[in-house]
Simulated scan of single mutants.
Amino acid sequence: MTAVIEDVAVGVEEEFHVVDPRTGLLVPKAEVFLEQLPRDRYGAELQGSVVEANSLPWLRLEDLARDLSAARRRLTKVADVAGLGIVATGSVPLVDLAALEISPVPRYEQMLDEYQLLAREQLICGVQVHVDVGDRDLAAIVLHRLAPWLPVFLAMSASSPFWLGADTGYASSRTLAWQRWPTAGPPGPFGSAAEYDRLVRALVGTGVISDQGMIYFDIRPSAHLPTLELRICDACPRVDDVVLLAGLSRALVIAECRAAEAGEPLPASARTELVRAATWRAARSGLEGELVDPADGRPAPAPRVVEGLLRRLRPVLESLGDWELVAELAAGALRRGGAAARQRSAFAPRGSLTDVVTSLIAETRLEFNEPR
């Protein structure tokens, strides 16, 4: 294994819902965007109401932020001309299932045939962070070390309180929908990339999944790039929060790669059963309740857990030159409160889910607010 610290690039994939801004309903119009935007940066997803945008990999978070903002501007420009809305959030509250369509891609059509309800109700969007880890053995080994902290990232991103027209009582109903897939959830321990690859082949061999692209672990090595993919997060309405997640993700990967190379023992909170419980807690509470603190496995207020993560990662963030930016973005996120709570606040005055979608369209348009 080789050390990981310098020149670690980070990139982001964001998924966006396409909506009718008048009614707030999801509409299967992703192709409107894909016909006009470059396919190397934008792509289709399972549902025809979702479009994905891919950033380039960047060393500086400020450059990543500008890339993400530019991608949203391009989407918004197309949306405005077409009379559509673009929304970055885990779920959209207003859905007419009969009006939606699977993207016309053979792989997605096969998934609909095989998975039925799971595919029809895949009305969710996430954000994925890709962090360079050039050594695949190290990438596989570190998965289990990272897992206890992933629920904190979920809590910071949780933005899907409404599902099919109702308040679920959860901050991230997307997590509930996502975890129904047969390979979703936290990964177990691996001793090498070869061991990880054997498991992937075994899962494909069961016939339950069709290919390695259906490995939906909360974090996984990329199948085709030298990166780790953090996949647990809801899509975030504010691009500031995406940049925050990217900065923390890179620092956490670096910190845990160092710990693995130093032979530091795994924390007790790395047990897969405990991580699953902590993930449920984060999906339920978001930033507004308690989380399971990975440091001791006990409940603690969400802001305290986030602040503990910042303290843990400060040495790495400072070595990358990211500390001031990440600390300011984290303070802003805690001050505003979670996206799920903001959506409930938008709903409260008139009891209107259309108002929720209107507020999400507006937040998705906001540019990166670089702290001064």
Rank of each mutant, 00 (worst) to 15 (best):
P371I: 03
A235S: 15
H224P: 00
G24I: 03
E101T: 14
I86G: 04
L366P: 05
P148V: 07
A193L: 00
A262D: 11
L26W: 05
A193T: 02
E15T: 05
D20M: 08
I5T: 05
L34D: 09
V131L: 01
G338M: 08
L176E: 00
L244T: 01
V95Q: 14
V243Q: 01
I141S: 00
H17Q: 09
D63G: 12
D211V: 06
L274R: 15
L75W: 14
S249K: 01
T23Q: 03
I215Q: 07
L230W: 02
S285Q: 12
D241H: 09
V239A: 10
L100M: 10
R350V: 00
V18N: 12
D7R: 12
P186T: 01
D240C: 04
I5G: 01
L274I: 07
S103F: 14
S222M: 08
G165Y: 11
R145V: 01
P21V: 07
T272C: 04
V4K: 06
T206F: 06
E328H: 02
P106R: 13
V243T: 02
D40V: 06
L150C: 11
A71I: 14
L309I: 03
E370N: 02
A346I: 02
E288I: 12
R311W: 07
A147R: 06
M1F: 11
R41D: 13
A30F: 04
P186V: 03
A166C: 00
Y196P: 06
A270L: 02
G286K: 13
N54K: 12
G85T: 06
L317P: 08
A71T: 07
E101V: 06
R258G: 09
A255S: 09
E15G: 07
L353P: 10
D113T: 13
D96W: 00
A295D: 12
L325H: 01
P303Y: 14
S345R: 15
F347H: 15
V19S: 08
I5W: 10
R311E: 14
V242W: 09
L26A: 10
G85I: 05
A268N: 03
V133W: 05
W280T: 06
L203C: 05
E45Y: 06
E114Y: 08
L68P: 02
L248D: 00
V316T: 14
L244R: 02
L245E: 07
A193P: 00
E121V: 05
L310A: 08
D355C: 04
V142L: 09
L100V: 10
S172E: 13
P189L: 04
